[in-house]
Design a protein around this nucleic acid. Structure first.
Length: 285
DNA sequence: AGATCGCCCTGCTTGC
DNA sequence: TGCAAGCAGGGCGATC
């Protein structure tokens, strides 16, 4: 379940192992892995052949690779289970290998997009003047972006008529936060997930943003987190690390602050984990 | 236009 | 044992 830290680990891997390499051949093994491309996988492959990858970029959970001397980029989203692997060309195909990139060099490795659940995919898009693939122009900057505007974020929260966890997961307000880090940051902030955003004060927003950044940086320092073998970084090593999450997945386990059993509540067809004592629900609206 | 909801997908777990 | 249901869930498009 890659969120911002995991995607950043993948981006760094691409920067290290793929930047500067020229595409020789692209093999699309599953049509769904190529997104928003009416001309299909064959055309996707044809457009990339002979082009050289630049330095991978990231915004939130999206990453993209600019192509030298071209006005478009290859955009990627890992979805739930996507992996970008740099593997020896002789290595056997993964069961869920979707797209293979062979390069015009003698390094003996290839780039593979592997995705079990096919929620992720790659696509090609023209760049905006800012160098962003045009289809993600609506994605907000992420909280680790130096240009993220804390004041504007607070103002936007106050204007919205929604609840805090929905807002944290709204990629047009703040990007890169998924269900796991949302629950972690809310627990650290002692905020209930249904707190109306219109009731947030400036200090509360500032505290929440601080916790979002802390939890992401801690995960990034350890190479990303994951809960099963689905997430693997660009070199094929598992991004899993056994850092103790404080909230996510801890139903019935004692709150690390007060010992009260943590609870899980169905929420938007997924789950929210929280401490019923530290994170009191808001008064009925 | 802001908010909400259904759908896409596969493999593992749970329950009858 | 076998089968079905539940669960994991990010993003997009339809709808109000």
């Amino acid at each position: 379940m890659p969120e911002l830290p995991e995607v950043e680990v993948v981006r760094r891997g691409l920067e290290r192992w793929v930047a500067g390499r020229t595409v020789d051949e692209v093999e699309v093994l599953h049509p769904r892995a190529v997104r928003r491309h009416l001309a299909g996988g064959v055309d996707f492959a044809a457009r990339l052949r002979g082009l050289r990858f630049g330095t991978a970029m990231r915004r939130g959970k999206y990453l993209w690779v600019p192509l030298d001397d071209a006005e478009f980029s290859m955009l990627g989203h890992l979805g739930m289970s996507g992996q970008l692997l740099v593997r020896p060309s002789a290595a056997p195909d993964e069961k869920h290998l979707r797209i293979r990139f062979r390069f015009d060099d003698v390094l003996g490795t290839e780039l593979r997009f592997v995705d079990q659940r096919t929620f992720g995919g790659l696509s090609l898009h023209d760049n905006t003047p800012e160098g962003l693939p045009d289809v993600i122009a609506h994605i907000a900057r992420d909280p680790l972006d130096p240009a993220f505007d804390d004041t504007a974020f607070h103002t936007a929260l106050r204007l919205r008529r929604t609840t805090i966890k929905r807002a944290l997961l709204d990629q047009s307000l703040i990007s890169g936060v998924g269900n796991i880090y949302a629950d972690e940051a809310l627990w650290r902030s002692r905020l209930h997930y249904e707190r109306p955003t219109a009731t947030l004060t400036r200090p509360v927003t500032a505290g929440l943003l601080g916790h979002v950044r802390d939890v992401m940086r801690e995960a990034l320092d350890q190479g990303g987190t994951s809960f099963d073998s689905l997430y693997v970084n660009v070199n094929g090593e598992s991004g899993y690390f056994d850092r103790s999450l404080d909230a996510y997945g801890r139903e019935d386990e004692p709150c690390r602050r007060c010992g009260t059993p943590m609870r899980r509540r169905p929420w938007m067809n997924r789950s929210s984990y929280f401490c019923p004592r530290c994170q009191r629900p808001p008064r009925a609206v």
